[in-house]
Simulated scan of single mutants.
Amino acid sequence: MAKNALQAQLLKAGLVDSKKANKISKQTQHAKRTGDSSNIDAKKALADAQAKKIEKDQKLNQEKQQLLEEKMLKANIIQMIKQHQLTETNGDISYQFVDDSKVKKLFITQKLYDQIVSGHVVIARLDDSYALLPRPLADRIDSKLEGFMVVSNDTVEDELAEDDPYAAYVIPDDLMW
């Protein structure tokens, strides 16, 4: 027996036999259960969307991992500075230096002053204050992450302009004002 009116009319007209009608009805039921060819396209689109989402999630995870590693590196550097900073630095002599275009002043001993001027001791940024570090440690810290060293007198910067009229007059670093 035919399932719908069209199949019944085709059977009466003799255009389709009963086996063929049953086969077509089974195919339509199967297509309804499993989905049409448009459903296959939807599955492909869904798989593509999932692949893009996975790729996006991996990129976000990499960025988070990089931020976490950078945060850990900063924390390790701050810990190294706190552990190895020179103590007994308070003294009568003031050492002035520039940090972020502001002039800062530290009161230190004469021995530390001489070591800073000669480049054996470096001034490093520690949270909201400053710490005095030995040169080898400061070099290791600077090689890991830049931005902590504020004063390093060992490096000579030759940024003199060619037309500078005062280029021949050298101002010593240990000049007292």
Score class of each variant (00 low, 15 high):
Asp158Phe: 08
Met80Lys: 13
His30Ile: 06
Lys56Asn: 01
Asp36Ala: 09
Lys82Glu: 13
Asn76Arg: 12
Met72Cys: 03
Met80Ile: 12
Glu88Ser: 14
Asp127Val: 07
Gln27His: 08
Lys3Met: 03
Gln58Lys: 13
Leu73Trp: 08
Val121Gly: 03
Leu86Asn: 03
Ile116Ser: 03
Ser152Ala: 06
Ile40Ala: 06
Arg140Tyr: 01
Val156Arg: 06
Pro165Met: 06
Glu162Asn: 14
Ala51Asp: 12
Ala45Glu: 10
Tyr113Met: 02
Gln66Tyr: 07
Ser118Asp: 14
Ile54Ser: 11
Ser38Ile: 07
Lys74His: 07
Asp41Ala: 06
Gly91Cys: 09
Lys104Phe: 04
Asp114Ile: 01
Gln85Leu: 06
Val150Ile: 15
Gln85Asp: 07
Ile141Ala: 01
His120Tyr: 06
Val122Ala: 00
Ala47Cys: 05
Ile123Trp: 00
Asp163Asn: 13
Val122Lys: 04
Ile108Val: 15
Lys71Phe: 11
Ile24Pro: 00
Lys74Gly: 03
Lys53Asn: 04
Leu73Met: 15
Lys144His: 11
Lys64Ser: 10
Ile141Gln: 02
Asp99Trp: 05
Ala168Gly: 10
Lys32Gln: 14
Lys59Asn: 13
Pro172Ser: 13
Lys12Gly: 04
Gln62Val: 11
Gln29Asp: 11
His120Arg: 10
Tyr113Val: 03
Asp114Thr: 10
Leu11Lys: 04
Ser37Tyr: 05
Asn76Phe: 10
Gly35Ala: 02
Pro136Thr: 07
Val122Pro: 00
Thr34Asp: 08
Lys12Cys: 01
Glu88Leu: 07
Gly147Leu: 11
Asp127Trp: 03
Lys53Tyr: 10
Ala8Ile: 09
Thr109His: 03
Ala2Gly: 08
Ala124Cys: 07
Gln85Thr: 08
Leu137Gln: 05
Leu60Asp: 09
Ile93Glu: 08
Ile108Met: 04
Ile81Met: 02
Ala42Tyr: 15
Glu70Trp: 05
Gln66Met: 05
Ser25Tyr: 07
Gln9Cys: 00
Thr87Met: 11
Gly14Trp: 09
Gln85Pro: 01
Gln65Arg: 13
Ala42Arg: 15
Ala124Met: 09
Val122Ser: 02
Ile77Tyr: 02
Gly147Ala: 10
Leu86Arg: 05
Val103Lys: 14
Gln27Leu: 14
Thr155Ile: 14
Ala131Tyr: 00
Thr28Phe: 09
Glu63Ser: 05
Gln79Cys: 04
Ile40Leu: 11
Ala13Trp: 06
Leu175Ala: 11
Leu175Gln: 09
Ser18Gln: 15
Asp154Leu: 13
Ser118Trp: 03
Lys3Leu: 07
Gln65Ser: 15
Asp41Phe: 06
Leu137Cys: 00
Arg33His: 08
Ser129Leu: 09
Ser143Thr: 12
Ser143Leu: 13
Ile81Arg: 02
Lys111Ile: 06
